[in-house]
Structure formats: structure tokens, C-alpha cells
């Protein structure tokens, strides 16, 4: 089972969980399993079936944009990191 790390802004959709265990051999399959477990995440992570432009996806420390995108292969020990930009600073 692979692990998906849920960024803080999306944790309201996972009941507060910071990580979710998923099955799948590609990032797409892993995300499908994530959305099956937490349906509300689908609309926040994808736009019309594509990965949202606002969220970077990493397998371990590698951005899937520079690998095979959603078809990037994953193994059981891999961690998928979802990373939207954070703006917070000084106010």
C-alpha cells in the first residue's frame, strides 16, 4: 500500500487525516483509490478529470510533471505528496 500525504488545506476532506493509505500501480490509480475513500477530494484535486493546475504532485521527492504525469508508476513503499501553494506569512 502506498501513502498519500494530505496537505493541510485539504485535510477537512479527509476527516483531519494527514496521510491516507492507497492501492494502485500508478499515480492515477492511487488517486482514484483516494477519491473512493474521500469523495470530496476529487473536485479539489482534479479539474475535468485532469490534475488541478494549482496542486503539485510528487512521488517521493520527484515532481510527476517531470516524470510520466498521472501515469507515473508507484510502488508499495512510495509516498505521494500533494502540494498546493501556501500564501501565509506575516499578517
Amino acid at each position: 500500500m502506498s501513502t498519500i500525504r494530505i496537505p493541510p488545506v485539504l485535510r477537512e476532506n479527509t476527516g483531519g487525516s494527514r496521510t491516507v493509505g492507497v492501492v494502485g500501480t500508478t499515480v492515477a490509480e492511487a488517486l482514484d483509490d483516494l477519491f473512493a475513500k474521500h469523495p470530496a477530494l476529487r473536485d479539489r484535486v482534479t479539474e475535468e478529470g485532469e490534475l488541478s493546475r494549482f496542486i503539485n504532485v510528487y512521488v517521493n521527492d520527484r515532481d510527476v510533471r517531470y516524470r510520466d504525469g498521472l501515469e507515473t508508476a508507484i510502488g508499495a513503499d512510495d509516498t505521494i505528496i500533494l502540494l498546493p501553494a501556501m500564501a501565509g506569512g506575516f499578517r
Binding site: V9, R44, R53, F54, I55, N56, P84, A85, M86, A87, G88, G89, R91
Partner: peptide
């Protein structure tokens, strides 16, 4: 390079809204 596009506000609430 890291974030090519500005995200919508609901993905990026400020400290004053979200807390820190």
C-alpha cells in the same frame, strides 16, 4: 517554476482566516 499559476483563495487562505 514551482507554482506557475496562482491558486484560488479557497486553496490558500490567509493566516487571519485559517489561523497559525
Amino acid at each position: 517554476c514551482m507554482y506557475p499559476t496562482q491558486p484560488p483563495d479557497e486553496l490558500a487562505p490567509a493566516c487571519s482566516v485559517a489561523g497559525v
